[in-house]
């Protein structure tokens, strides 16, 4: 991939990210943050390549540690977000009943 292609992708994705987040209500700020935090664990993909290609012992060790850390980030992030959102859940169902 050329540098310009990569940079184009980067800039467009930043703009997209700003558009996606601009009007999120405060109630969802914390889950949004922990959920997007889990997505930033995507560096796991790079870590897996480093750990799995067997280039040298050093790169394998670096890759292995990176896989562990990134996986904690990914799994923990998505799960804790789910746990938080579940707490918002029942109240949303109750609200329409109250409206009646």
């Amino acid at each position: 991939m050329t540098f310009i292609a990569a940079l184009t992708m980067f800039v467009l994705a930043v703009f997209l990210g700003v558009e996606l987040i601009a009007k999120v209500p405060p109630t969802l700020h914390t889950p949004l943050m922990s959920g997007s935090n889990a997505i930033s664990g995507i560096t796991l993909v790079g870590a897996m390549v480093s750990a799995g290609t067997d280039h040298s012992t050093l790169t394998s060790v670096l890759g292995f540690v990176a896989v562990v850390l990134a996986t904690i980030n990914v799994v923990g992030g998505f799960l804790v977000t789910h746990r938080m959102l579940a707490m918002f859940g029942p109240k949303r169902k109750r609200a329409p009943e109250a409206a009646k």
């Binding site: 987040i21 949004l32 560096t43 790079g46």
Partner: peptide, 22 residues
């Protein structure tokens, strides 16, 4: 950018932008 991996670039910058907004 290091790995020439489009997914990392896109996912990372989405999170970067959302964190900046917050």
């Amino acid at each position: 950018f290091v790995l020439s991996n489009a997914l990392l670039i896109i996912a990372g910058s989405l999170v970067g932008a959302s964190g900046l907004i917050l």
